[in-house]
Design a protein around this nucleic acid. Structure first.
Length: 255
DNA sequence: ATGGCTTGAGTGTCAAGA
């Protein structure tokens, strides 16, 4: 079973890339973030023609998440239990016996800003909720754009970025609280190339210079981590014309 | 040098991303 996550930065613009990538990679599940579409505009027909059923939760202009799956996903749920949020950032569903949670964690804008405080509140609520979800669903996978670089090796210039949003102590502590629940960062279960990143700024020729950060993650509960054979970042779509600024991350489970 | 692109909204040019 192959499960993947990709922040597409507008599904309307990126649909051709997504369709090509589904065709070439054949994942069983693809979690999308920043679809930036209302549900009535979601391209479910085009995706169905490509062999994928869709569950989605969108809004105009911002945010928006979706779960695409080759076999129809069941028991869809929306948002974080017990946390009121207007922003469409979480969708969950079960497929092939795996509970899939697709996340678009708030960016946080700047340390100390209102949006940063919202990010930390949001992450605290997420952790409380996932503790319960793990009890109900031992085979749990949490995929998405976490907007957190967990360690210095996940940033091209950790000195320049020190203490900034995406890598502040409080954000990293929130990430460790998630792994502390028993959710493992599947990327770090394996030897990986130095300077592996999942996001590069559109400016400054950042991708060509590999000035990136690793903020898109696939976390697996222990029973799933035990089946994980690989986790990789696919840089190829970032090389295309009009790319998303994020690369997809894909994990292979022996299920 | 707080910008450098890209998107959506909407037709001016700005907010937001990370």
């Amino acid at each position: 079973m192959k499960i993947a996550t990709w922040n597409v930065n507008s599904l309307k613009v990126r649909l051709p890339h997504v369709l090509d990538w589904l065709h070439s990679q054949q994942p069983d599940v693809l979690c999308l973030q920043e679809t930036k579409q209302e549900d009535k505009a979601f391209p479910a027909d085009e995706l169905a023609a490509a062999g994928y059923s869709s569950l989605f939760s969108g809004q105009k202009t911002y945010n928006g998440v979706a779960i695409l799956s080759r076999t129809e996903a069941q028991q869809a749920s929306f948002g974080i239990g017990g946390f009121e949020d207007e922003q469409k950032r979480v969708i969950s569903a079960t497929t092939n016996g795996v509970r899939v949670v697709c996340l678009y964690v708030p960016n946080g804008q700047a340390v100390g800003s209102d949006k940063y405080e919202y990010k930390l509140r949001w992450l605290a609520a997420l952790t409380r909720w996932l503790r319960d979800e793990l009890e109900q669903h031992p085979r749990l996978a949490v995929l998405g754009d976490f907007n957190i670089a967990p360690e210095d090796r996940d940033i091209y210039d950790p000195v320049a970025w020190k203490g900034q949003v995406l890598c502040s102590d409080a954000e990293r502590e929130a990430f460790r609280a998630l792994t502390g629940l028993g959710l493992q960062d599947s990327f770090r279960l394996f030897d990986q190339p130095q300077k592996s990143y999942s996001w590069w700024d559109y400016r400054m020729m950042a991708f060509r210079r590999n000035l990136g950060i690793r903020i898109d993650h696939i976390l697996l509960s222990a029973p799933l981590a035990a089946t994980c054979k690989a986790c990789d970042i696919d840089r190829e779509p970032r090389k295309l014309e009009r790319p998303s600024d994020h690369a997809p991350v894909i994990a292979t489970l022996e299920l």
